[in-house]
């Protein structure tokens, strides 16, 4: 199928893009990497009047380091993140997750900002950002604001971003000594959206875990922070009892809905299996 007709404008700077968004409101959609949007246009699942292409706006791409944060421009592609030495050093979790995102040609075009804005609960970046306690820089004509990833995702494909706003960057807190991290997901074919996935961060000191953060992919309407499991693991040596408590806590933490091939119960089971495996790998 071919998309319904729409008009297209390539914004040359952020102010222009924001002004266009203000003018066209709900009739406009932002075109970033386009790897999800254009597929939905091709299926006529979405039929905006306007596409506002922000990909040529200077300054929205690239990975930099500030005193306090690792800053990833919204238009940075999955591929750039996958290969970034800065990411490998300061947020290795993202480098671990990147290879799971679709395939090479998609990673060359898809952007982290687009993935965050689309907010697919089965996508990798949102869950990683929740686990990393990242914040998103959101720009409107009226000004800039920052929102924690942990409050940004409100419901299925529903976020704190208003239609007239653009995500410009993802800021990940810098840690003096970055935590260890593990990213794991279960997909029946490489590159597919995962049945369920886990992003685990933590420190290991003499066998005990600390500063534990656990984000889940595909385990609810939004990317989820598994707070119960985090609490169960925090400060503990991950022996069988602790792992059992952490896995049990997932019952409260997660709220997966079924998909074509997996019931909620299956997803819960797989989420628990992944947690145990991720913790063991973190400790290894």
């Amino acid at each position: 199928m071919k998309p319904s007709p729409f008009d297209y404008v390539r914004a040359t700077n952020l102010t222009e893009a924001l002004a266009l968004l203000e003018r066209h409101g709900e009739q406009a959609q932002i075109l970033a990497g386009g790897q999800t949007l254009i597929a939905t246009l091709n299926m006529r699942l979405s039929a905006p009047d306007w596409l506002i292409d922000i990909t040529r706006i200077p300054g929205l791409s690239g990975i930099t380091l500030t005193e306090t944060h690792l800053v990833i421009g919204a238009l940075t592609t999955h591929r750039e993140i996958e290969r970034s030495a800065l990411v490998a050093q300061y947020a290795p979790l993202l480098g671990q997750a990147a290879p799971h995102i679709a395939h090479a040609a998609i990673r060359n075009s898809g952007t982290i900002g687009g993935s965050i804005a689309f907010a697919d609960p089965a996508a990798e970046w949102p869950a990683c950002c929740v686990a990393l306690d990242a914040r998103f820089v959101i720009q409107a004509l009226s000004g800039e604001r920052r929102v924690s990833a942990r409050t940004f995702f409100r419901g299925l494909y529903d976020t704190d971003r208003a239609a007239h706003e653009i995500i410009t960057a993802i800021e990940i807190p810098r840690e003096r000594a970055p935590r260890r991290s593990v990213f794991m997901e279960l997909a029946r074919r490489h590159g597919d959206y995962a049945i369920v996935g886990v992003a685990l961060l933590g420190r290991v000191d003499q066998g005990r875990l600390s500063d534990v953060a656990i984000g889940y992919v595909g385990a609810g309407a939004t990317p989820l922070l598994a707070q119960g499991a985090m609490a169960a693991l925090e400060g503990q040596a991950a022996d069988a009892d602790v792992l059992a408590r952490a896995k049990a806590a997932l019952a409260q933490d997660l709220d997966p809905s079924g998909d074509l091939y997996n019931s909620p119960a299956t997803k819960r089971h797989l989420a628990a299996v992944l947690l145990e495996r991720a913790v063991k790998q973190l400790l290894a």
Binding site: M43, R189, G191, D192, Y193, Y261
Partner: peptide, 29 residues
């Protein structure tokens, strides 16, 4: 054996009429 099925609901709607959901074998597996 492992991947492919045209899934229908009890109203006769095919639920995975899409190449992302009808799983064909790809190289890695």
């Amino acid at each position: 054996a492992l991947l492919e099925e045209c899934c229908y609901d009890d109203q006769g709607q095919m639920l995975n009429a899409h190449l992302g959901d009808y799983l064909v074998p790809m190289a890695l597996e």
